[in-house]
Amino acid sequence: MKLVVVSAGLSVPSSTRLLADRLAEAVRVAVVGKEPDEPVETEIIELRDHAKDIANTFVTGFPPPKLEEVLEHVTRADGLIAVTPIFSASYSGLFKSFFDVLDQDALTGKPVLIAATGGSPRHSLALEHALRPLFAYLRAVVVPTGVYAASEDWGGEGAADGPLASRMSRAAGELASLTCGTGSRPGPPRDAFEEVVPFAEQLAALRGEE
């Protein structure tokens, strides 16, 4: 199983990357629990490292080689975890820009776990009114449980086995069920040009009809 994790955290270290790492590990544990012989290959993509390339792609229309490779990894993944900080009650601009330059068919049928971080629990609904509609538009299969982590979720007693840990475990189990289920993994997008008939053959066919 190829699991790709997209993190839109801006600082180093960041709570967004921390949540991304925790979710990736939770999914790995859930997959092993369902399919003990299933190896899980995890790749973490830090969008902050590709911010300039993402911006340039908007201008030129063509992603640079490094960004193109990242986009390909997301497209080929069996499952995706997408984590963003919440700014002004929505996903970050960097997060949205990345999925804007991704091919519109890349996530079709792909299992996706959505997650976000923020300073206040008041922003938790951003998962439902911002992230879920975005991935529904991209025709991804979004797991029922979204994971939001406020600053207060990381400290104090019960952080390791409290509500946040419970949400992560439940969401990870849902993603594992989709990626390990029979026939659930999406195949690579079909190349629209694979079946194009060369012009010379089309012309020969027309002449033959005449």
Rank of each mutant, 00 (worst) to 15 (best):
L23H: 04
F95K: 07
K96Q: 11
P64R: 14
D49A: 15
A176E: 02
A130K: 08
G181T: 13
A150Q: 01
V74L: 04
L203Q: 12
L178V: 09
G146D: 03
V197K: 09
A204Q: 14
A204I: 12
H50E: 07
E41A: 12
I81A: 06
R22S: 11
A55C: 04
D161N: 14
Q104M: 11
V196L: 15
R132M: 05
L23I: 15
L206R: 15
I86R: 04
G208P: 00
V142S: 07
D53A: 15
E152N: 10
Q104S: 15
L175F: 02
S184R: 12
V74F: 04
L67A: 08
P186R: 13
E157V: 10
T42L: 10
T57D: 05
A172R: 02
S90C: 11
G119E: 05
S124I: 11
E46M: 08
D49N: 11
G109Q: 03
V6P: 03
L125R: 09
E25W: 04
I86Q: 03
R122Q: 14
S177T: 13
S177Y: 00
L23P: 00
V141L: 15
D53Q: 15
L80T: 09
A55G: 10
D105L: 08
Y137L: 14
G173D: 02
I44Y: 13
T16E: 02
L134K: 00
H129T: 08
K110T: 10
Y91L: 12
G162I: 08
P111H: 07
F87C: 08
D37I: 02
A116S: 12
A205I: 07
L178M: 14
V59H: 03
V142M: 09
G79R: 02
W154R: 06
V31F: 03
R48P: 00
K52T: 14
F87K: 07
E201M: 12
G208M: 05
S15C: 01
L19I: 06
I86D: 04
S184P: 00
S169I: 01
